[in-house]
Structure formats: structure tokens, C-alpha cells
Amino acid sequence: MTELLDQFEHAVVAGDADKSAGIARAIAEGALATPDEVFEHLGSAMEKVGSKYETGEYFVPEMLRSAEAVRLAIELLEPYLFTRGRDQSGVIVMGTVKGDIHNIGKNIIVLALRAAGYDVHDLGVNVSTMKFIKAVKETSCDILMLSAFTTSTKVALLDVLTALEREGLRDRVKVVSGGASHSEEFAAEVGVDAFARDVKSALAVCRELLQR
């Protein structure tokens, strides 16, 4: 089993969509791995892709190739993962902030949150402040999750928070930021309620915020 999941992870990192989809189909049809195992390996693949980007081995097209492999795999895995336990409830709006087009991590987290039972509205990538505000108003969401891969998107994060204040929405919604480069200090500087570095912490943070 570990070998299969390792192959799955490797296929995602290499951007081999045919292979990752084939393994995903096998997992879904044969219940060959638990959702936790799937998310763990997707999260690990995501970290490796991010690391290759940081070191200059990968560029945006290579990241998107991996993102496509993830997309095809999660399409096949979604029905299987959704039949598992869905013990959480709450409405979450999520998107990657303006100026940032990274979507692999966001897509995996969206899937994990949906699998856990949350109603997730995925706004996509390079989302304008205006679009975030509109979605918060329309969905009356409990949590707004802002994905930002690099710290250079701090301006965009601050812009969303300022707009939430301006629109009188800041007290009505918990704001979580996330991305490979995030730290507690960065989140504190930006002024979000919590931050998540990966799938596991995103699930834990949402559970905790909604139980408060």
C-alpha cells in the first residue's frame, strides 16, 4: 500500500496526470487507502513541488502540470472520499489572493475540507478583493480562507482585511491565511485569526475556529 501511495505522490510531483489518475482510480475502486493517507501523500507531493519551485528546478508551467495531475486525481477520488465520515459543518469561502496563481495546495485543501463535511465555495486563483467581499456577503460564510503561496502577496492579504473592515464584515467572519511560506509571525503581521501551513493544520484550524 505504501508503495502505491508513494507512486501516487511521485506521479503528482512529476506531473504525470495519466499515472496519478490511474492510481487514484484504483484507490477509489478498491478502497486501497484511507482519506487521511491520501491527503497526507497529496500534501507531501505539494510540498515537494513547492520546494522544486523554490530551488529553481520547477517554474510555473511545471507546477501547473502537477496541479493538473492533482485535479484529475481528485476528480476520481472525490466520490470515494465523500462517502467517508463527514463530521463537520460550516460554510467556507476560499481562494488564492490577487497576484498569485498557485492552486495545487488550495485545491487539495478545498477537497479535504469538503470531505470533512464543510460547504466550501472555491473562488479560484488570482481572486480580487472585490470578489472575496462579494462572496462573503452572498454566502454568509463562517470562515474566509485566503491562500497565498509567497509572502510577496502580503499586500493583497492586507487589502482583503482592510476591505472586510470597511464593509463591516470583519467581526462576522473568521479569516484564515495559508501558504507554504506562512508563519505565525507573518499571520500576526497581516492580522488574520489563524493560519494553516498544510492540509492537516487547515482541518484543525477550521474545526477549532468553528467550535469557539
Partner: peptide
């Protein structure tokens, strides 16, 4: 669209 465009590089 930038994402579709750069996805096409390999696809």
C-alpha cells in the same frame, strides 16, 4: 488566461 496558457505548455 495565464493558468490555462501555461498548462498548455506540456498538455
Amino acid at each position: 488566461g495565464l493558468i490555462g496558457f501555461m498548462t498548455d505548455f506540456y498538455a
